[in-house]
Amino acid sequence: MSEAVQRWRIVFARNEEARYLAHLDAVTQWERAFRRGAIPVATTGGFNARPKLVFAAPLQLGMLAEHELADLFLAERLTAPALRERLTAGMPAGYRVIDLHDVWIGAPALAPQLVAADYRMTLLGVEREDLASAATRILSAERLPRERRRETKTVAYDLRPLIIELRVRDADAGTLAADGAPAEAAELWMRLRHSQERGSGRADEVVAALADELGMTTASETPGATETPSATETPGVDRPRIESAVSVRERLWLEEELTQHGERDQAPSSPEQTAG
């Protein structure tokens, strides 16, 4: 065990090359990256000493990210340029360090400060107008009862309070047309609540709710998220399918950040208004 003398908050992005890392695999890869970069990471005590690294929120397998947060505790002080250089030297492909903040070592833990997350998804097989009207209906609903599968049991919950905002926009046609994807496409932007105590919204659940609203089914881009792999053939055989081609977690919001900036640049609005 080595004691921490410095705490760095790493702001990072994850692109295509690392998208299929599940959270635990990502943790392992980061630990290896620290060894490759010879970063003096502080370790936890106990038989199986682990590097002290705390991710704000696990990133779902298949999801890209633009502004993720992790706290790294060092056993020796490093300057920001030195740390950045060593991180870059060992980081697995697909991860990019955006920013480093020297955080007071006694500052509150990262994860409980998290309040919201923004997501952007490119959905195939659905018209923008249809998606926008479904989004309006969902936002005006009082409750949105859904079920989430957790290992063996199914848990019923209300999705509505977890949705802070939904917007529908045109999909970026340029990137999709080249690959011969379905003609109908739309982009869904959402801000979902992310709270350790009050629950967190899942982007794929929102898409599934929208699909239900439209009498459609989903083929999630994040495998195993809402359906079993073979489910593409079985349950919604004759229902048209919404396929998510790109899903990105744009940003994680800490409580103080959201109260300072988040509300100001994202005035409450209905999805159609923003979309139109």
Partner: peptide, 26 residues
Amino acid sequence: VPALTIRRLLSRVRKPGRYSGGEWNS
């Protein structure tokens, strides 16, 4: 093979990390 084609196929299978490459030292 186009990236979107691969992405769409991998969205439907278990352990897509088996087929995506990009590992350290590859």
